[in-house]
Amino acid sequence: MSTAPATTREILIATIADLLDGVRTVAVGASSPIPAAGAMLLRARNEQRGRERVRVIVLGSREHNFFTNGSFELFDATAQGRVDAFFLGGGQIDGQANINLVGTGDYPTSTVRWPGSFGSAYMYYLIPLVILFREEHSPRVLVDKVDFVSAPGSSEGIHRTGGPHALLTSLALFDFDKEKKRFRLRSVHRGHTAEDVRAATGFDYDAPANVPSTPEPDAETMALLRGRVTGELSECYPQFVETLVADRAA
């Protein structure tokens, strides 16, 4: 087993596992290898520590998806309150945690068009713990105001049991303050500074006077991540696992 220090992506995976601590059921959308790895890491670690069992549902996987009712079941189980955590991203995320998965410019003839809103205009309202995850941390992604609201960060006067909990990027981790409807910087990953984060973020946010570093994964976590979790991940994300392993050797 490699004893090389955690790579950037391994820090993200371990951070996701920590953010998910305490959840019973976590779902991961298609094409989300890092969130899937984080969920699998929590499952493996809780098992090793004799803690509560974590159910992981990875859309697009056969091995890590126990649903039998097709595309309906994630949405139905979510509305029934059976899914505790989920991940959303976006081409744009703004300072009020509104997310845009549709495109930039004037709708509908968007100059840059992304795939579409998927289930976000529903899941964001109903999943108690939504982690916003986007590797790219730049002013074009983290904007003051999104061009199109696929799903709003908060709502008034409607049935809403879920919403944003945290925002994780390749530079930093933010918490979302539901009262203030603002992000607050929690920590900055190894190799970056609070100033780097401020310069790369297009929205205003709160921050403590001294911004801590994102914790490095401990030896137990690293062993699980480089062993069991890498194996589990290769069933649905073989290409991602290749790059993950190559990063460790670099």
Partner: peptide
């Protein structure tokens, strides 16, 4: 990656777009 003919058709207004969210279609 992105679907190229879809994105091009959006830019040129080649078809009427009805953006949805998954559970609404279902």
């Amino acid at each position: 990656g992105g679907a190229p003919r879809f994105a091009d058709g959006i830019r040129s207004g080649a078809f009427k777009m009805m953006d949805a969210t998954c559970p609404a279609v279902l």
